[in-house]
Design a binder for these strands. Structure first.
Lengths: 131, 131
DNA sequence: CTACAACTTGGAGTTAACTCTAAGTCAAGG
DNA sequence: CCTTGACTTAGAGTTAACTCCAAGTTGTAG
């Protein structure tokens, strides 16, 4: 699979794919005889992981560390497990913040919609959005 | 409430609080006669909102837009409602990505813990983490 | 009244994560 | 063989969101 096909499939730029490989977010990608990237299943797997964890806010630095440990072999399984558990906690905490923001948003949207329909916003004594 | 008390309360730096005010993420904060910030309840409310939505990944640019509309008065209620609904969709989608990453993480952690206990990782044929 | 810490501003600097540019190489169609 | 478009690299540039700095002001304690 060419770099173009991969970036179309995952809606990511070729520059980003090359950047991920260059800094070690993914291991070196399989190449053709001429040196052109030929993404094989395992390369795609790493790309998918990278996108998935970046989308969940994991820093590039942590992905690089994971790939580095992975490439060092089975002796790093403990370290990798710890890294993943740490990542899990980080993502759980971040998601909690998303839930809080959603609650606040739903409350605000509800109040605005009420105001639009009944024009009574000004008589409410909201604990937010004064001033 | 002084800037110091606010940043201790919300675990945020004074520089960030001043930056938020300067660029318009929050409206101008109440000042003492001498020009020193004196955060009143409504200022604190805006700070809380800013932190909450930034924690949920909303860009500073969007918070600025919301505050700008808010300060333009009631005629912008429609626009603000739309902004909030858009934010809601964005956050929902982001949260979905967090859930996907968590699933993937739990799967990987499970496999690593199994490997640690039974040393059989190598005989599994995992669809990820080859190479 | 004098220290002295905490505050103020404008503006420059930093960091993470891309994103772009230049100069060149590879490969498929004619 | 030649063109043409997609690929390659090294390295510079950009963007968002802070973060720091210098020089000056405020306000409290002695």
């Amino acid at each position: 699979m060419t770099i173009k096909e991969v970036c179309e499939k995952y809606d990511i730029t070729a520059d980003t794919l090359r950047y991920y490989e260059r800094v070690g977010v993914i291991p070196p990608v399989t190449r053709t005889a001429g040196g052109i990237r030929d993404y094989r299943d395992e390369d795609i797997g790493w790309v998918e992981n990278a996108i998935c964890f970046r989308d969940a806010g994991m820093p590039v630095e942590m992905l690089i560390e994971y790939v580095k440990l992975f490439r060092e072999g089975d002796s790093t399984i403990d370290a990798r497990t710890n890294l993943l558990k740490e990542a899990r906690e980080t993502i759980l905490e971040a998601r909690k913040k998303y839930d809080i923001a959603l609650e606040k948003l739903d409350y605000k949207i509800g109040r605005y919609e009420l105001a639009q329909k009944t024009d009574v916003l000004k008589w409410f004594d909201d604990e937010e959005d004064k001033k």
